[in-house]
Amino acid sequence: MRTWIGAALAVAMAFPAWSGVAQMGDDGLYKEPWMRDTFKDLREDLAEANAEGKRLVLFVEQRGCIYCHQMHEEVFSLPDVSEFIEENFFVVQINLHGDTEITDLDGESLSEKRATQKWRVLFTPNIIFLPEEVPEDSSAIEAAVAVMPGAFSKGTTLDMFTWVAEKRYELDNGEDFQRYHARRIQERDDGNTD
């Protein structure tokens, strides 16, 4: 009996407590509750996102990606980040090396790995933010209003998602994302915001 309890305790201690981290899918990618399981026809996904009043965003990830793990463990697991994404975005996950067929916004059908090559995605995570309206001949990367390549902290991530949700890329006020983010950092440092 003691041996069994000791072994169970050793196994439990060997794995970190990832209660806030998404579950691992069969494809080796983390699955957040707000990620959508779609047919990966991006025109259909865009229409559904628009119908829900949300923005379509593509999360390109890969199995074994330590930076993807970091984002899921340290950023996406935070309630305020998770809630903001769920309320404002329609998230479709793309496997950098996957074979699942995608129909790109321009109508081309190809595997996930071919699509990510077409979109010039070189590493993960890579988050591609799309507008509500996309010309018929534009691919996802051509239509993107912003791309977030890599793992970032909560502040940077939430600022990027907010900047896109508020359509600040359309504003002609001279405040691109870098200036917006710098202002938000200063506001947080001054205690004026979360």
Rank of each mutant, 00 (worst) to 15 (best):
M35P: 09
L46G: 09
V57C: 11
L105S: 10
H97C: 02
L42A: 09
E86S: 15
L96Y: 01
T38I: 10
I102Q: 03
L105T: 13
K40D: 10
S82G: 05
V92S: 09
Q62P: 04
F90V: 09
H72I: 01
K54L: 04
E52H: 14
A47D: 15
M71V: 01
Y30C: 00
E87W: 06
D80P: 10
N95Y: 12
K40S: 08
T103A: 04
E61L: 05
M13H: 08
Q93L: 13
K40Y: 11
V60D: 01
A17R: 13
G25N: 13
Y67R: 02
G107Y: 08
D37G: 00
L58M: 02
E86W: 12
L78N: 00
N50V: 01
E73F: 05
E52L: 15
A8P: 03
F39R: 11
C68D: 01
Q62R: 03
E74Y: 06
L9E: 00
K40C: 06
P16K: 11
P79W: 01
W18E: 02
K31H: 11
R36Q: 15
G25E: 12
M35C: 03
N88Q: 10
A51E: 14
P16I: 08
L9N: 01
A51T: 09
E87K: 13
F59L: 11
R55A: 10
D80F: 07
A22N: 10
E73A: 01
H69D: 03
E108N: 10
K31E: 14
Q23A: 12
Q70S: 06
D80N: 15
A51R: 15
H97F: 14
R43I: 09
G98F: 04
V75S: 03
A22V: 00
T38F: 09
E83T: 12
Y67I: 01
A10Y: 01
E73K: 13
T103C: 00
V75M: 03
T100M: 12
G64Q: 10
P79H: 05
S82N: 06
E52N: 12
M35N: 09
V92Y: 12
K31M: 12
F84T: 06
E87H: 11
G53L: 05
L78H: 02
F89W: 13
F39M: 06
E87F: 07
I66Y: 07
A10F: 12
V91Q: 02
A10N: 05
A47G: 14
N50K: 05
Y30S: 05
G53H: 01
D41F: 10
F39W: 03
I66P: 06
R43S: 13
Q23R: 13
H69K: 07
Y30T: 00
T103M: 11
V11W: 08
A12R: 04
L56F: 00
H72Y: 00
Y30K: 05
T100W: 13
E108G: 02
G98S: 05
V91Y: 11
G20D: 02
G53Q: 07
A8C: 10
D45F: 11
N95L: 10
G20F: 02
L42T: 08
E73Y: 09
A47R: 15
M24Q: 14
F84S: 09
L9T: 06
F84H: 14
R36F: 08
D104V: 04
P33V: 03
